[in-house]
Design a protein around this nucleic acid. Structure first.
Lengths: 333, 333
DNA sequence: CGACTTATGCTCACGCGTAGCATTACCTTA
DNA sequence: TAAGGTAATGCTACGCGTGAGCATAAGTCG
């Protein structure tokens, strides 16, 4: 490699820089994302700017989130930096978004804030009650998109992408009726793949909008398309969900979303909410306490209906006992 | 949440923007990273700038890497955006680095380029020949750092961090002599944790340099400290190694580093080089072909010493057959 | 030809994930 | 007060993936 490598002159476009936050909390069985109102009226992810006196990007994020909403962020993780030119079709300068994922406990959240159900944004991601209804509309539409391909090579690539992203088994395709689609091949982590596929296929409102079609949000609705966000924020939300799902399986991040003590049922609910699948209760319990993730306090929760549940607390020692401590997903049904 | 959220005025510091690439290839059993010469004389990761006409960040990267080195990148993945203020202690403006990981096949690489062994940068990461020798010096030094903590809380936190990052079992600590440290708790993915720990403990040259100590590279050498890079580039290289190790276990990325056909031995070597551990050959073979990752061509490799090995090729269908196809790491010894 | 190296096949045990069945303990309602 | 419902929790059987070794095949080297 030549010695002058990397010696380029700084002629680069001075891009606008922005920090975005996907702030997540789980209330009941609903995973929720904090939104603000964008100038164009649509909901958007909260964002802020980097200041000279912010020593690190993380600190900048915590600072402005605190200033804007009063939220004290706990767990924070950088997600991705988005810089596609299509982000702001209107403006001339490129906008660069550094996106972060943050987890907060519901109690810390202001009640009046504009939280939105994550699965309102991405309805095709929630398998907790079986195959998401959104698939009924999306899969045929994707099939049409596959068939619209120009040339057999493109066709094949599209089919592969759809099959992989949505976990479609080409073998079992026809034997359908008997089995209502198992989702064995569904990979919960591929949230971004799926969103981008739908974008390319023109099945989400942002696709039309980004292509210059105004009045895109007057798109034939149907809840199966999900609620669009401003700019490319839904793409960011998809990235966040995928990342979080992945992380669940090898780091005990769920506990960031829970109060200091909680019942196992509650823990399971939160995991299910994020993973988007129902879990086998008994196996989940075994996993969690034989795995050393939690320990019982002596206390019991008294609620309506059913035997009182013991309250547990997170056992931080698990981090020292196991190299990659995460909650596997013992799926039910 | 208030309606004026996110409406901040763009008073942000106009940061300098830069794209960095960790370009990886494996030759023989050595994982190597492409470097260039930084103005200060130290080796550095290649970097380039974003241009107005680059539609996406990925494309910008491919463009300037091609311009600079003639390399055609195959697999490319965004790693992380670094923006700590300490990056450029000298300059006033903050530099933002968007770092990418790229995998190339050795044949595509120009021979005269300045490739550097990844484990020269991070000598404590290579367990292929048992416990890395670098640990002999590092672990005691880290222990000293732990003991230097101000106050018991800080002490405990430091101890936990060291133990977790380096997979130290506090129980088995004393029973030492008999067992030469198994590394059962070692998590190959925590490369960045380890590097940052060493940085904080002042055990890598960059630490002194970043703290304003000039002549930092005249630091008492010892190969166990690893070769420093310019700026924070070693941190970026550590991020890349961690990410790649993680990805190996759930996506078939290794094949990006291999020619179209290869022997299983070669495949194993490459995985071992990246994972930094030795694998159990028979179990690895079983994993790989029962897992459907490869299929035999009829051809055989004729080489010196030993029975000829069949040449295999990657089986892309595995992507459709299994939700998270990755090579587990059946560790040896 | 014998020693050595590498490739490849096969077995056996164990732990974990999958799937149910069973029991306990409290609430609600008849 | 008894019956029925719901939730929590315990326990077992089974299959598969993984860990660990033994054994054999098929070349090269001296």
């Amino acid at each position: 490699m030549d010695a002058d490598l990397g010696g380029a002159q700084p002629t680069a476009a001075p891009a606008t820089l922005r920090l975005n936050a996907v702030i997540v909390s789980v209330v009941d069985t609903t995973p929720r994302v904090l939104t603000v109102r964008h100038p164009d009226g649509r909901p958007a992810l909260p964002y802020g700017l980097l200041r000279d006196d912010d020593r690190t990007l993380d600190r900048a994020l915590r600072r402005w989130v605190g200033e804007q909403s009063g939220l004290e962020l706990g767990y924070v993780e950088q997600l991705y930096t988005f810089g596609d030119i299509r982000r702001d079709s209107g403006e001339t300068a490129r906008t660069l978004s550094i996106a972060y994922l943050a987890l907060v406990q519901p109690t810390a959240a202001r009640v009046d804030a504009a939280w939105i159900d994550w699965y309102d944004l991405l309805p095709w991601e929630d398998w907790r009650s079986g195959r998401p209804a959104a698939h009924d509309a999306l899969l045929p539409a994707l099939s049409d998109w596959v068939d619209d391909a120009a040339g057999p090579a493109c066709h094949q690539r599209r089919r592969d992408r759809v099959d992989i992203a949505f976990g479609i088994d080409p073998q079992r395709e026809r034997a359908s009726a008997s089995e209502p689609a198992g989702g064995d091949l569904w990979d919960g982590v591929r949230v971004l793949d799926r969103y981008e596929l739908l974008w390319e296929a023109g099945l989400v409102a942002e696709a039309l909008r980004d292509r210059g079609d105004d009045a895109a949000d007057t798109h034939p609705a149907g809840s199966w398309r999900g609620t669009p966000l401003a700019l490319d924020h839904r793409r960011i939300a998809a990235t966040a969900l995928g990342r979080l799902r992945g992380k669940l399986t090898y780091r005990p991040v769920v506990f960031e979303l829970l109060p200091p003590t909680f019942t196992l049922r509650r823990l399971q609910q939160v995991v299910e909410a994020l993973a988007g699948v129902s879990l086998h209760t008994q196996n989940f319990r075994r996993l969690v306490d034989r795995g050393g993730f939690v320990e019982g306090t002596g206390e019991f929760e008294e609620q309506t209906g059913g035997r009182p549940a013991e309250r547990f607390r997170f056992r931080p020692e698990v981090l020292r006992e196991r190299p990659r401590p995460g909650l596997g997903l013992p799926r039910r049904s």
